[in-house]
Amino acid sequence: MEKVIELENLNKNFPGFSINDLNLNINKGYVTGFVGANGSGKSTTIKMIMNLIKPDSGDLKIFGMEHGDYEKTIKQKIGFVYDDNIYYEGLSLRDLQKIIAPVYHDWNNETFYNYIEKFELPLNKPIKNFSKGMRMKASLVLALSHNPELIIMDEPTAGLDPVFRKDLLKTIQEIMMDEDKSIFFSTHITSDLEKIADYIVFIKDGDIIFNHSINTLQNDFALVKGNRSLIDRDTEQEFDYISFKEDTFEAMTKKPRKIAEIFGDEVIIDKISLEEIMYFFNGVE
């Protein structure tokens, strides 16, 4: 499968935090959700992709090109949305359009106005009077109006109410009707991802723990509940993480079919949510 982002052995050291030998490939034509706790390295990774942070070592390719020689070519084809405010507060969307449109070869005013209308945004009001949700939509309009091939978003749903989030997810799905588009975005609201993401990348303490398709997660991961007495040294091997309550246990397994064979009706094998997967990976003994 064609890759849109390829990170190979990336290293970056900060005081108190580091990313070591990070490897990550993002497939073209799909939505990839990027999850992990706060401070796990999501923003750092996204900033390295955007060349806002320079890795100490390693290879980084976007559309198969490196920033060194092709930074401008790459960024012409990227749309970005960040969770902090990067647009001048006193300016209106019309002002921002005037400033940003000439930067992109493929800027399309028709697309711009379509999104403004769709999101019901005021053209002439300064951004500083916008609500959090409107700001996100404004960023989205400015990110999408040059018809980017790759859309990178850092926590676009943070602090947004469910209605706004639904609009965003619908927009993402609309974009994905075009198979040449790819979307990579970080979020901590995992329920948003479970429906629309094709792949989920989970990062913890600067390490990529997994990069799976949503089908793999739904099919191969399961939540198992049962009596504590069922767990002994042998059966323990079949689980990846176990948490015990008084007489019962809850565990994550990557072999739900084998568990069903071993325990039969003695345990409950349930669908596991992304949130629960993260919870288990994040620190159950």
Binding site: M50, L52, Q76, F80, D84, N85, I86, Y88
Partner: peptide, 15 residues
């Protein structure tokens, strides 16, 4: 200085 304009400038197609 009021906004993180370096983040914007460096995300746009400029070196």
């Amino acid at each position: 200085e009021q906004v993180n304009s370096d983040k914007l400038l460096n995300s746009l197609p400029y070196t």
